[in-house]
Computed example of a mutant assay.
Amino acid sequence: MGRFEFTSVFSPELRLFLAFKESMGCNGASRIYYLRSFDAYCTEHNVRSFDREAIESWVRFKKSSQPGSSPSWMSYIRDLGRWMRTHENPDAYVLAESWKSEFYRPHPYLLSRKEIDAFFGSAADLQIASPWRWQSVAFFGLMQSCGLRTCEARRLQLQDVDLTAGFIDVLWSKGNRSRRLPLNDQLIDVLADCDRISRQQFGQHRSAFFVSLTAAPVDPATTGVMFNRIWNQAGLPLPLGGKQPHPYSFRHHFAYANIERWMAEGRDINAMMPYLSRYMGHATLDSTFYYIHTSPDFMDGYATLVKEGQGMIPEVGFA
Rank of each mutant, 00 (worst) to 15 (best):
Y109F: 14
S295R: 08
A264G: 05
A271Y: 10
N46P: 03
K243E: 15
S65N: 15
M272I: 02
D51V: 13
N184E: 14
L236S: 10
H293P: 00
N46C: 06
Y248V: 05
S65H: 13
V137E: 10
Q201I: 12
F289C: 06
Y275W: 10
Y109A: 11
G25C: 04
E13C: 01
G68R: 07
D169G: 05
Y76C: 01
L14C: 09
S178W: 04
R60D: 14
W231T: 07
L142T: 14
Q66F: 11
G203C: 01
L142Y: 03
L95H: 06
D195N: 15
L285R: 00
A19F: 08
Q159R: 10
R177W: 04
N46F: 02
R251W: 00
R179Y: 01
A165V: 04
H246C: 12
S64W: 10
R251T: 00
I230V: 11
G203F: 03
S212Y: 00
D125P: 06
L126T: 01
V190R: 11
P182D: 13
P108D: 14
Y256Q: 09
R199M: 11
E102V: 12
D286S: 13
G317A: 15
H45D: 10
G2H: 05
T43S: 15
Q310E: 02
G2V: 04
Q159K: 05
Q135A: 11
P245G: 05
A192G: 07
Y104L: 10
G28P: 00
V225W: 10
C194N: 10
V137H: 03
E115M: 08
M1Q: 07
H45P: 06
L305M: 05
L126A: 05
G81K: 09
Y76A: 02
R196L: 08
T164P: 00
H282E: 04
F50D: 00
E97N: 03
D39M: 07
S64G: 14
G81R: 00
P239Y: 02
A29P: 12
Y93A: 09
D185V: 07
M280P: 00
R85E: 12
P274C: 06
R105N: 03
Q127V: 12
Y248I: 03
A264E: 08
S122N: 11
Y34W: 15
R278M: 04
F139H: 06
K62R: 15
L148T: 02
F103A: 08
N46V: 02
Q135E: 13
P220R: 05
S49V: 12
G141I: 04
Y104N: 08
F10W: 06
L236C: 13
E53H: 12
L158Q: 15
L213R: 12
P314R: 11
H252N: 09
S65F: 06
R261S: 09
D125E: 15
F103L: 01
I230F: 04
H253K: 13
V161S: 01
D162S: 03
M280Y: 00
S207W: 05
D39Y: 09
S249G: 08
R78K: 07
L240Q: 10
H45I: 03
Q135K: 06
H293T: 09
E315Y: 05
K114W: 08
M24D: 04
A264W: 01
T214S: 15
R149P: 07
H87Q: 10
R155C: 15
N232C: 08
Y279I: 02
R36T: 07
Y256E: 14
S98W: 02
R278F: 03
A123H: 05
V59D: 04
R196E: 13
N270I: 01
F103T: 09
Y76G: 03
Y34A: 02
W58T: 08
E102M: 11
